[in-house]
Nucleic acid binder design. Structure first.
Lengths: 344, 344
DNA sequence: AACCGATAGACAATCGTTTGCAGGAGGCAA
DNA sequence: TTGCCTCCTGCAAACGATTGTCTATCGGTT
């Protein structure tokens, strides 16, 4: 048995099977592919011998010949800001959903982390022809590269913000609406000195801030720059930013954090500063990741339905593989009210 | 510019570059590979022309010829229990760390979700030769398949439990010690009716339960079967299991959950049943995932350092790629005491 | 017996690289 | 001028599949 195992692992090619069956390679190829050119009896005999010998087709050779790899690339362009993929549960969740959706369709997943992106990165990735299509998670600061590639490469779908001069297919949340929605909620519970915590270099976050500013203006709140604090996505950076905010603006009465992770760090900082949530300071996050529902207090947040998003993206990607120039989609954010803004 | 872009995307092969340079394909190949056979001047000329035309080497053809793909496979064998990769943050985090570690070494990552595993799955994956090595995350119920492959395929590293008759390289936590540690902690704070919540079909969980049983016996606690409740890993399943536990054993005074997700569900169920944590029932989880620190109350748990684990696994895998038969490693669990077992 | 049509299966080119081997150009010494 | 040696560079054969084209075989018909 062990011996058989060893022998079974040795490289076995189609021509070997052909020899064992006493037919030519082409016949084996056609038989395995289920071509009608091959007689049923021959086909069965060949298949039987092939898997008795543990033959597995070589996808590299097949891909080279067919110019198809049965593989989708999932790409994370990470700017200097977020060097680690694991730094935010958002990326992890999105990746998990992508794996689920793509493998459901019988494709393999090739994950690339591009960090930091060099000028031709997307073109190079495309021209390598290792994947039949590509999903890019987050625009980072790579709008230009995406535009450049999106014009000429159809099977590309991007998760991110909708930008005005966009030449590529985007599926993404309406971040402006999300930012407005969050801020209006804070205003509706009587808050006036509302801070925004988040790094606006990714366009998603910039749009959330834009929505925040719009809501503040509409309510006649004046937003000093000091209420807008750039905060990195890692818990450490976020906590430092929250502390800076609190020392510079002791009278802040609400915090809109650009992600749940940032919001949790803010909760921590507030607790250490002796502020009560939500009585002294209300806190709202963004994403509705797993942590939000279980935090103390449970976190009010703006939900993005990543399972649905992933499904849509993969659906559009596969339609693009068929040649359809899909239009992208804008998802509606949903406000999830919990106890970090409204005491029970 | 747009026009140049379009032209740049058309398939360009090495022989095209050779023609443009007025040399042969072999010279281009050698030049790009930095072979000392090619004169420096020629080499520079070729490289200059190659990337002026945006030439990208075709990794499929290269891989076919070299029998090397510069790719590592990350495989999740999911039994019937966990059909979704995204169901547990453990898998997501592990995947995130794997992507970080592997791309750090300049390799690509090919993710496969195998669900449910069919008899020859691992052998087939190996024989496809799409990857130079393979990391399997979790043994699920596939110990036999792993043994079968591990005997003949060197570049394979598995995350999971250490089992007696193991023929493959495992990096994993000492789950028995972890289970014992958790249970002893509960005993040390005076708990006597300690429940175990978790599905013991994956060996990791079985070993945690084994440690739990050992600690109970050592302390002279008798464990009725009714205190051991199989609970799925999804929040819904876990919550149902926790509720069943509470109705069947109203006098339970501690719960050891096999994962943090299960523990959080238990917290929910306890709150709904009107029990205080930790006063009435102490709760301890496993993993120390991101949710644990922020829950209400913060969750006491047994920490597995996944960043370190991922680093070790990838390190051993690359040593195996060099031919070294690495021995695997057992990581020590660490008890993280928070307020779900000890009131502040 | 000769011919024809249909059909199963073989041949060979192709996908885009890498690399062992052979050969050509140029330099230097005799 | 010849011969030899040293560098470069080119030729062609892999790597392992797929597929258009062509051939052989077989049965049936006249």
């Amino acid at each position: 048995m062990a011996n058989e195992s060893v022998s079974e692992l040795k490289r076995l090619k189609m021509s070997d099977i052909a020899r064992l069956c006493g037919v030519s390679t082409s016949t084996v190829s056609r038989a395995l592919a289920g071509s009608p050119l091959i007689q049923e009896a021959t086909r069965e005999m060949i298949i039987q011998i092939a898997d008795a010998n543990g033959y597995v087709i070589n996808p590299l050779a097949r891909g080279l010949r067919l110019q198809r790899t049965n593989t989708i690339g999932v790409v994370f362009p990470l700017g200097a800001i977020t060097a680690q993929l694991i730094s935010d549960p958002f990326f992890q969740q999105m990746l998990g959903h992508m794996v689920d959706e793509i493998s459901l369709r019988g494709y393999q997943i090739l994950v690339s982390k591009v960090t930091p992106p060099k000028p031709g990165w997307l073109r190079e990735l495309i021209k390598a022809h290792r994947t039949d299509g590509m999903v890019v998670i987050g625009q980072s600061d790579q709008h230009a590269a995406l535009n450049d590639a999106g014009q000429v490469y159809l099977p590309l779908v991007v998760w991110g913000a909708h930008l005005p001069d966009q030449q590529y297919c985007v599926v993404g949340l309406d971040n402006i609406a999300g930012g407005r929605m969050a801020t209006e909620h804070l205003i509706s519970i009587g808050r006036r000195r509302i801070a925004f915590l988040g790094d606006p270099s990714p366009p998603e976050i910039a749009q959330r801030r834009q929505g925040y500013l719009a809501a503040c203006q509409a309510a006649g709140l004046d937003v000093t720059d000091r209420l807008i604090v750039p905060a990195g996505f890692s818990p450490q950076q976020a906590e430092a930013a929250a502390e800076r905010l609190l020392t510079e603006n002791p009278d802040v009465d609400a915090i809109f954090a650009a992600s749940d992770v940032i919001a949790l760090s803010a909760l921590h900082a507030l607790r250490r500063a002796g502020k009560r949530v939500p009585q002294d300071v209300a806190v709202i996050g963004f994403d509705d990741s797993a942590v939000a529902a279980h935090s103390n207090p449970p976190l009010t947040t703006v939900r993005q339905d990543l399972a649905h998003a992933a499904h849509l993206m993969v659906d559009q990607l596969f339609r693009r593989l068929e040649g359809e120039a899909t239009a992208g989609e804008t998802l509606a954010p949903e406000l999830i009210i919990r106890q970090s803004t409204v005491a029970p």
